[in-house]
C-alpha cells in the first residue's frame, strides 16, 4: 500500500519534473553559460563578465531597459485603473446572465491570435485607417493623421493585450467579497469612496497584486505589440534581445540581456511587493 502511493506520487510528479528540468532549468543554465562567454577569436571563447559589462556601460541598452520598465509600469497602472471598475461591475453589480455575458465578452478577443488583434489596431490607427478617416469626415482634421509608431500607440496595444489578465484575478477576488460586508460599510456611515478604499481595495489586494505582476511581466516581455505598433524605433528591450540573437548573431550578448531582464524584472516585482506590503504567498494562495 505504501509502495503503491509512493509509485503514484512519483508518476504524478514525473511530468512536472521533466517539464521543469528539460524546458526551464537546462536551457536557462545553458543560456547562463553562454552569457558568460566572451569571444576572443574565431571559435575561441573565454569565460568572463564582459557581456554584462557591455550592458551596464552602454547607455543605450540601459536606457532601453529603463524605458521598457517605465512603460510597462505605466501600462500596468492604466490596465488596473480600467479593469478595476469593469471587474467590480462584473463581480458585484451585474447579475446572472448579464454577468456571464460580460465576462465572456472580455474573453472573446483572446480567441483571436495576438498578431491578428494587433493588426486590428493598425487598421484603426494608421494614416489611411478608420480613426483617421473619421476625424477627417467629422472635420476635426484636414489631412490624414498618422497615429501609429509612437508611444501612445504602444500603450494602447499593451493595455488592450493585458486587460484580460487583470480582469480575471480581480473578478475572482471581488466575487469572494460578501455583499453584506459592503452593505455594512455603508450602513455604518461610509460613502462610496471610503467603502472602496477601506473595504473593497484591501479585500481585492491579492487580486490586484497578482494581476499587476502578470500584466507587468507580459508587457515587459512583449515583443509583438511594441514592434508592430511602435515601429522600428520603439526601443523595446525584447527587440534588443531579438536583434542580438537573430540580426547580429551575438548569442553571448543576447543571453546576457535575457538574464538582465529576468534579474531586473524580478527586482522590480519584489520591490513592488515590499512597497505594497504584500507577499507572494498571500497573493498566490
Amino acid at each position: 500500500m505504501r509502495d503503491g502511493t509512493r509509485l503514484g506520487f512519483i508518476l504524478l510528479l514525473t511530468p512536472l519534473v521533466l517539464w521543469l528540468t528539460l524546458l526551464i532549468f537546462i536551457p536557462h543554465v545553458d543560456m547562463f553559460l553562454v552569457s558568460l562567454r566572451e569571444r576572443v577569436g574565431v571559435g575561441q571563447y573565454d569565460t568572463s563578465l564582459a557581456n554584462y559589462h557591455t550592458f551596464l556601460t552602454e547607455p543605450l541598452y540601459l536606457w532601453t531597459f529603463l524605458r521598457t520598465a517605465v512603460m510597462s509600469v505605466v501600462a500596468t497602472v492604466i490596465t488596473l485603473l480600467i479593469a478595476f471598475p469593469v471587474s467590480y461591475y462584473i463581480a458585484k453589480i451585474a447579475k446572472g446572465r448579464l454577468q456571464s455575458t460580460l465576462f465572456l465578452m472580455c474573453l472573446i478577443p483572446f480567441y483571436v491570435s495576438e498578431l491578428v488583434r494587433t493588426f486590428g489596431w493598425m487598421i484603426l490607427l494608421r494614416e489611411t485607417g478608420i480613426v483617421s478617416n473619421l476625424l477627417q469626415w467629422a472635420g476635426l482634421a484636414d489631412q490624414p493623421v498618422e497615429m501609429l509608431y509612437n508611444d501612445a500607440a504602444i500603450m494602447i496595444g499593451l493595455v488592450y493585450t493585458s486587460m484580460l489578465f487583470m480582469v480575471v484575478p480581480l473578478v475572482t477576488t471581488l466575487e469572494s467579497l460578501d455583499d453584506a460586508v459592503i452593505e455594512a460599510g455603508y450602513d455604518l456611515g461610509g460613502n462610496a469612496w471610503s467603502v472602496t478604499r477601506e473595504i473593497v481595495i484591501p479585500h481585492a489586494a491579492p487580486g490586484i497584486v497578482s494581476g499587476s505582476i502578470v500584466v507587468f511581466m507580459l508587457s515587459l516581455g512583449n515583443y509583438l505589440t511594441p514592434t508592430m505598433l511602435g515601429g522600428k524605433d520603439s526601443l523595446w528591450f525584447t527587440e534588443l534581445i531579438y536583434s542580438q540573437f537573430i540580426v547580429r548573431f551575438n548569442w553571448e550578448l543576447g543571453a546576457a540581456f535575457g538574464f538582465m531582464l529576468l534579474f531586473l524584472s524580478s527586482i522590480i516585482v519584489w520591490g513592488m511587493l515590499k512597497l505594497t506590503g504584500q507577499t507572494l504567498e498571500k497573493t498566490m494562495g
Binding site: D178, V181, E183, A184, G185, L188, E198, H203
Partner: peptide, 12 residues
C-alpha cells in the same frame, strides 16, 4: 444600524 445575518465584520 444593522447586525447582518453573517455579521459582516470587516476581515481586513
Amino acid at each position: 444600524n444593522m447586525v447582518f445575518q453573517h455579521l459582516a465584520l470587516f476581515p481586513m
